[in-house]
Nucleic acid binder design. Sequence first.
DNA 1: AGCGTTGCAGAAATCGATTTCAGACGCAAG
DNA 2: CTTGCGTCTGAAATCGATTTCTGCAACGCT
Lengths: 322, 322
Amino acid sequence: MATIYDVARLAGVSPATVSRVFNGTTVTPENERVVRDAAARLEFVPNRTARTLRRRNSDIIALVIPDIENPYFTALARGVEDEARAAGYSVVLCNTDGDVTRESDYLEVAVSEHMAGVIIAAASDQSDLSPLLSRQKAVVAVDRVPHGAAIDAVTIDNAVGAELATRLLVERGYERIACIAGPDDVETSVARISGWRDALSRAGLRADHDLLEHADYRVEGGSAAMARLLGRTDPPDAVFVANNLMSVGALRVLRDAGIHPPEIGVASFGALPFSTSAPTGVSMVSLPARELGASAARMLLARIRGDRQAPRTLVLEATAID
Amino acid sequence: MATIYDVARLAGVSPATVSRVFNGTTVTPENERVVRDAAARLEFVPNRTARTLRRRNSDIIALVIPDIENPYFTALARGVEDEARAAGYSVVLCNTDGDVTRESDYLEVAVSEHMAGVIIAAASDQSDLSPLLSRQKAVVAVDRVPHGAAIDAVTIDNAVGAELATRLLVERGYERIACIAGPDDVETSVARISGWRDALSRAGLRADHDLLEHADYRVEGGSAAMARLLGRTDPPDAVFVANNLMSVGALRVLRDAGIHPPEIGVASFGALPFSTSAPTGVSMVSLPARELGASAARMLLARIRGDRQAPRTLVLEATAID
DNA sequence: AGCGTTGCAGAAATCGATTTCAGACGCAAG
DNA sequence: CTTGCGTCTGAAATCGATTTCTGCAACGCT
């Protein structure tokens, strides 16, 4: 692999001049030509490792997400990518699988590779961002903000969205509306539960203790929770499911049990991914995943460019799909 | 950020000794203790950039895929991750969006960051892997092999899988079986078309010219192609759709047209993602995406460890789902 | 006692770029 | 003709780790 020294020798100039050519500093047109010719002839590609070591920062942004198989996060990733690439940064995705250990491994990589910044959808409330913060790395939390972290964030109004979804069920006349929620150590899950509670109490309905099921934001978790609800002596007549994948699981269980949607009410927080058959009777609130990613990327880029404002939080709204 | 020199000074040893402690070379127990104490007190994290520069390789593997929103690729990514992480490597995902320019940007990053290796599902047949090959970087192609590349590969037997899927339709008695294929500059697409042709000719059926539609392996492409087929004066009575996302699109168009599956035969190459309602009459062949990724990772790891065999290709089979 | 191992530690070179600093040169003004 | 300023260049220091090479000390063996 050709280095800047090889190019310099072939071009008959010093390595400094070669560096300057590739960094836009002033160089004689003649020298510029000679250097570019030499570089082309040697198929020279600058060594980013050396550059990063010297400059103490790279032009790579890490996007850390908890579940790469969730279309919500992949849509979010597209949003991040579009903005970041337009600004000349490369984005690499790191999948933590909801595991705090994996997550901190990736954060350490981001720090020790001197990446330009990190956008993170935290694995849990307990996620520890201190390795980033103590080194003043640019960070933006997206979708979820770890407990007590004073950083830029872009989130969804979970309580309002959940209330909206639940209200859709109320309006259709359902009265015993259950909730399949996420893990209880995840901030978003707590907010969605309270949205569900609010909708019920405003409608004068009871949020019975046994109407709440916790699961893991995954398909299988949704299935299991739905099965438990159906197994109750007094099953619900409708269910608010707090994320898209669990809705898929719940609907599968209902299908297998021969119960089809208008018969039981189903509302999903987040649109069903890749749905092909009209899920009649399934209400949905749709989340601006891509916009979430794009906004986060814009905030991060501002920080990278030196923005020193106090941390801001941007809250986007979920919207009902009819 | 503390460096090895800071640690050395605090511990009263030379930087070389500190380095040795973190690299398992022999050091006095006493020195080891002193160094670890100092490192802990300073929250020392080794600078990977410097290490990579010196060692000329890192322990990061790049996985380059064309469409992060396709569940097939995300499942594949999980397979790669599981194997790679077990071997102590970190995996970063790069999404090319099927764009050869983006792809080569990412390949250049992989090279100039001295990553340990690259697993790539090429954006097209024309993808140029020479930046990797000319620098002897470990590479494994997965799902698709760019034209003429003599490298390790893990693929699916596309022709056999397509034939299998089409045969499922033949067995159900359909006779005018159309094909919604992928882009014609993608190797996998060509093979799937020929599988479709084979199945038809073995069944004594005609593969009429106007039964073949090309699309882009995306949901919208599938919709458009299905719409075109329905618009024909002599529409097909069944359709073989050459990838999962296009199947979703095709099924949506059918649903909107009020035509439900057993009425028209539908076979999908690749299981429908997140399907919730029994797609009655939809035949599917399922692809071992995760296994594909895992195998690719194993081959790559072998190369990274110095395996010098001639390039091998591993072909996995698609299986019918009933 | 003398000699060859062996084990460990430190000095210094190295990886490949960027950047500071100082010098060379050209040109205009005095 | 000299001074002064601005532009461009190259030498050398630098980023932070790894690794080679050398030296020293301890130990075993004949």
